[in-house]
């Protein structure tokens, strides 16, 4: 139903149904990838499948032919919470950055698809390593500053976990971006309320996130991370509102484990893989729309 993208994807128009179909396949990829190596992080990956699908198949101007590390003229994306690599790898493969068959090498010895994203194995689509949390916002700000110097008006996007906001470096970066008017930057927070040890509110409550970012000088948007049309509209709004001297952040409400009933409503699938029986149950809930890898 669609082909790998050769040029800037946002010149194509995708119906909501098309994007939902892609997201469904991405979810199948995620659970199959983690199940085959009995490791990895399915919970947050499933929760961000809709967002990353919209970003790569609708919102971002980007190119995979060939992948350019410098990405001049392209919108860039930084995954700061690198542990949800399965969703990123699936979306990149489905967007034509590398063969979907490579998803079968995830976390295996010698694979380009490392447990956490890295550049050393030259996987197309990855521009910097992530995994140790809290660094992606700084990386993205640096990339945005370089774009400004280069006269490149493309956007820089990031994704962060909500638990990740407990890292101090995030707030160093948040102060910098507002103080220095880094305004082509659109950060998104996966606000699923869960982290490894339990609910974020119990582990270390973040308080009022929107109010915090507002106080830090950011433009704040909120959206439902599982409503394709709302994701499209919110990103479009953030892009339209950018360039006015303030960075933007989207607080995205999601459900960890979204799409697989037994993975929803708990933090337990943050970093655990399903067994064969659980995998079968998960796959029965997710339509194979584009063909499994």
């Amino acid at each position: 139903m669609f082909l790998p993208l050769n040029l800037h994807s946002n010149i194509f128009y995708m119906e909501t149904k098309d994007l939902q179909n892609i997201a469904s396949q991405v979810r199948r990829d995620i659970v199959r990838m983690v199940a085959q190596v009995s490791s990895g992080h399915p919970g947050g990956s499933l929760g961000c499948a809709d967002f990353l699908t919209v970003l790569y198949f609708d919102s971002m101007k980007h190119s995979n032919a060939p992948f350019s590390m410098d990405g001049k003229g392209e919108d860039l994306f930084f995954l700061s919470n690198g542990h949800i690599s399965p969703v990123w790898y699936s979306v990149l493969a489905r967007a034509g950055y590398f063969p979907v068959a490579d998803l079968g090498t995830f976390r295996r010895l010698g694979s380009k698809l490392q447990g956490h994203p890295s550049t050393d194995k030259k996987l197309p689509g990855i521009r910097i390593a992530s995994g140790s949390l809290g660094q992606g916002l700084s990386n993205a700000i640096g990339a945005a500053e370089t774009k400004r110097l280069n006269g490149d008006d493309a956007f820089v996007f990031t994704l962060h976990g909500d638990g990740e906001l407990q890292e101090g470096q995030i707030w160093e970066a948040a102060i910098y971006a507002a103080a220095k008017k880094v305004d082509k930057l659109i950060a998104t927070i996966d606000y699923n309320g869960r982290q490894i040890d339990g609910d974020v509110n119990d582990v270390m409550n973040l308080g009022n996130l929107a109010a915090k970012f507002t106080a830090f000088g950011w433009i704040v948007y909120e959206m439902d991370g599982h409503n394709i049309d709302e994701i499209k509209a919110t990103i479009a709004k953030a892009k339209a509102g950018a360039g006015q001297g303030k960075p933007s952040v989207i607080v995205m409400k999601t459900e960890m484990g979204k799409g697989v009933d037994f993975m929803e409503g708990t933090h337990k699938w943050h970093g655990s893989a399903p067994n064969a029986e659980q995998l079968a149950s998960a796959l029965a809930q997710l339509d194979e729309t584009l063909g499994d890898y």
Binding site: M69, D70, S138, I141, G142, A143, T146, E172
Partner: peptide, 20 residues
Amino acid sequence: AGISEANMIGMAAGMTIGGK
């Protein structure tokens, strides 16, 4: 970068993307 060394190093890494 102000007194924010972690952010400074992270930014510097990001700035190489695009050739700086």
